[in-house]
Computed example of a mutant assay.
Amino acid sequence: MSETLCVLGLDAADYRLATRWQCSNLLLETSAELESISYSLDVPATLEVWPSIATGTPPAEHGVVLDSVGWDNTSGLNVLVRMAQLLPDAASERLAAAKERLDEGGFPYTDDPTVFDDGSVRNWPGVTPAHDWERESEWFEQATEGRMATTEFMRRYFGSTGSCLGWLAGQALSDVPIAGVHAHILDHAGHMYARRPAKLRTVYERIDALVGWLRSRVDRLVIVSDHGMQTTATDDPEPGVHSEHALVATTEPGPLPTDVLSVRPWLEDRIEADGEGTSDPTASVDAPREHLEDLGYL
């Protein structure tokens, strides 16, 4: 039995839709609607909320924010940051560091401590380089512009999402205290199919089945989203726009966190402090070095 607390960040997983469509794996043993936050926009923004979940602090403190006037489509990454002088001094310094990373290519991310510092994390916006999300965003742009067939877009996306969930299952075998991964598929699918609920439901049901696979392979699982999605299925006024209806679900007993800023302390209360498997900082290899060099490994 693995004590690793596995955290699946499932972007735009809407509690109302998961409940309406009876996605039992997304809802796990206990689930609830999670209160999200808005900062640069009138609705929650992916790049701002995920580092807030990991750090337990609002965007003005962790320093990863959007520019409220719009997106820069010439960057290829569609990411801007708010002017540094609008933030407190400490946040401005962190924002400057994030801006340097943006100039080098890739989404900005915070230097602040996160819940994953003693564990492992992959593709978490605002916390790690989000190469999977960057690649998926390129696919989404091609699909929305008619340069990629929707069937090809979804085929690639399910493969990418499966890779993320497989990574999380693998981390549970490595006995880290906590592991987290972000998967973006329900966000892009929600934008794409906001007025076609039958198609969106199919995506939810397939992701539910994929999470079922993950659920059967890890002992402790938490699912959290950053926001929901307005759709015609839920009679929302602006289909395809982010909603406040985020989701939290878990196999863990006890009360659930109520908002995205309380997720980090809630997770930390449940992390096993054993640390077994992380005490030996030096790797050792039994094969002769000469043989490894002959093979081209070194």
Rank of each mutant, 00 (worst) to 15 (best):
residue 172 A to H: 07
residue 185 I to G: 00
residue 168 L to H: 01
residue 33 E to T: 07
residue 98 A to K: 02
residue 187 D to L: 06
residue 137 S to P: 01
residue 151 T to I: 05
residue 83 M to R: 15
residue 252 E to V: 08
residue 261 L to E: 13
residue 200 L to D: 13
residue 290 E to D: 13
residue 147 R to E: 14
residue 285 V to M: 00
residue 83 M to S: 15
residue 48 E to R: 11
residue 136 E to F: 11
residue 124 W to R: 10
residue 235 D to L: 06
residue 24 S to E: 15
residue 246 A to T: 10
residue 124 W to Y: 15
residue 245 H to Q: 14
residue 207 I to K: 01
residue 94 R to G: 01
residue 164 C to F: 00
residue 93 E to D: 01
residue 64 V to T: 11
residue 108 P to F: 03
residue 47 L to A: 15
residue 82 R to C: 11
residue 209 A to N: 08
residue 170 G to A: 13
residue 211 V to Q: 01
residue 239 P to N: 11
residue 161 T to G: 01
residue 186 L to F: 01
residue 180 G to F: 12
residue 129 P to T: 10
residue 39 Y to W: 13
residue 109 Y to T: 05
residue 84 A to Q: 13
residue 238 E to S: 05
residue 44 P to S: 08
residue 158 F to R: 02
residue 31 S to E: 10
residue 206 R to I: 06
residue 32 A to Y: 05
residue 13 A to P: 10
residue 136 E to I: 11
residue 257 P to G: 02
residue 228 G to T: 08
residue 107 F to R: 06
residue 96 A to G: 05
residue 96 A to K: 09
residue 205 E to I: 13
residue 215 R to L: 01
residue 244 E to Y: 10
residue 198 A to C: 09
residue 232 T to S: 14
residue 38 S to P: 00
residue 260 V to G: 14
residue 191 H to N: 12
residue 152 E to K: 09
residue 237 P to Q: 10
residue 94 R to E: 09
residue 114 T to K: 09
residue 156 R to D: 07
residue 221 L to A: 14
residue 71 W to V: 13
residue 71 W to G: 00
residue 98 A to N: 05
residue 218 V to C: 11
residue 108 P to W: 02
residue 111 D to Y: 03
residue 8 L to W: 02
residue 95 L to H: 12
residue 147 R to Q: 14
residue 11 D to Y: 00
residue 5 L to C: 11
residue 74 T to Q: 07
residue 286 D to A: 07
residue 238 E to Y: 10
residue 254 G to F: 14
residue 25 N to R: 11
residue 276 E to L: 07
residue 162 G to P: 05
residue 37 I to S: 02
residue 219 D to V: 12
residue 169 A to F: 00
residue 277 G to I: 07
residue 241 V to W: 03
residue 178 I to N: 00
residue 165 L to Y: 09
residue 285 V to T: 03
residue 225 S to N: 03
residue 248 V to D: 02
residue 139 W to R: 04
residue 228 G to S: 09
